[in-house]
C-alpha cells in the first residue's frame, strides 16, 4: 500500500516538475515602448497611444504595419484592436483606441515588418483609471515589460 501511495505521489511530483515553469512569450527581437498616452494619466475612454519601435541595435523600425491590441489582465473583456499610423521613423500612433474599463491593461503590439517578417511584443499598462478620477492613481500609469 505504501508503494501505491509513493507511486501516486511520484506521478503528482512529475506533473509538478513539468509544470514548474510557465511559458515565456516571444518578444520578437524588437524593443517596443509606449512613449506617450493621451490623456495622461490613462483613463477610461478614447485614448491615443504613441509607440516607438526599435530593433535590438536601437535603430528605428520604419515601414511596418503595426496593429495594437489592448486587453485586460482579467479574462472576459472584449479586447480593443486598432491599426496605427507611422508619424515619423519608428514612431506609430494608434487610431481610434479606447480604454473600455479601468484597471490593468496589456498592450499587445503586432508588427509586420517591411521585409515580411513578423514580431509581437507586450507592454503592461497598469492602473488605467476608471470613470471616477482619483488623485491616488496619478502616478500609476506606467509602462514596462
Amino acid at each position: 500500500m505504501v508503494t501505491r501511495f509513493a507511486l501516486a505521489l511520484s506521478v503528482l511530483a512529475a506533473l509538478a516538475l513539468v509544470a514548474c515553469n510557465p511559458r515565456s512569450d516571444d518578444t520578437g527581437g524588437l524593443d517596443v515602448r509606449i512613449v506617450s498616452i493621451a490623456p495622461d494619466p490613462a483613463a477610461v475612454g478614447d485614448a491615443t497611444l504613441t509607440l516607438e519601435i526599435r530593433d535590438l541595435e536601437g535603430a528605428p523600425v520604419s515601414g511596418a504595419t503595426v496593429e495594437v491590441e489592448g486587453t485586460m489582465t482579467h479574462a472576459g473583456m472584449e479586447p480593443v484592436i486598432v491599426a496605427t499610423e507611422e508619424t515619423s521613423d519608428g514612431t506609430y500612433v494608434t487610431q481610434d483606441f479606447a480604454f473600455t474599463m479601468g484597471g490593468d491593461w496589456v498592450i499587445i503590439v503586432r508588427a509586420i515588418l517591411a521585409d515580411g517578417s513578423t514580431a509581437e511584443q507586450r507592454v503592461e499598462l497598469r492602473g488605467v483609471q476608471g470613470e471616477m478620477k482619483m488623485d491616488m492613481n496619478s502616478d500609476k500609469a506606467k509602462e514596462g515589460n
Binding site: 509544470a19 510557465p22 511559458r23 512569450d25 479574462a75 479586447p79 496589456v106
Partner: peptide
C-alpha cells in the same frame, strides 16, 4: 485548463485557464 494554464500563453484573456474558471 491544466494544459493551457501550464503551457499556453500567460495572458488570462487568451488562455483557457484564465477564461473558463474565472468567467
Amino acid at each position: 485548463i491544466l494544459y493551457d494554464g501550464f503551457w499556453g500563453p500567460q495572458l488570462a484573456p487568451k488562455n483557457l485557464a484564465g477564461v473558463l474558471p474565472w468567467v
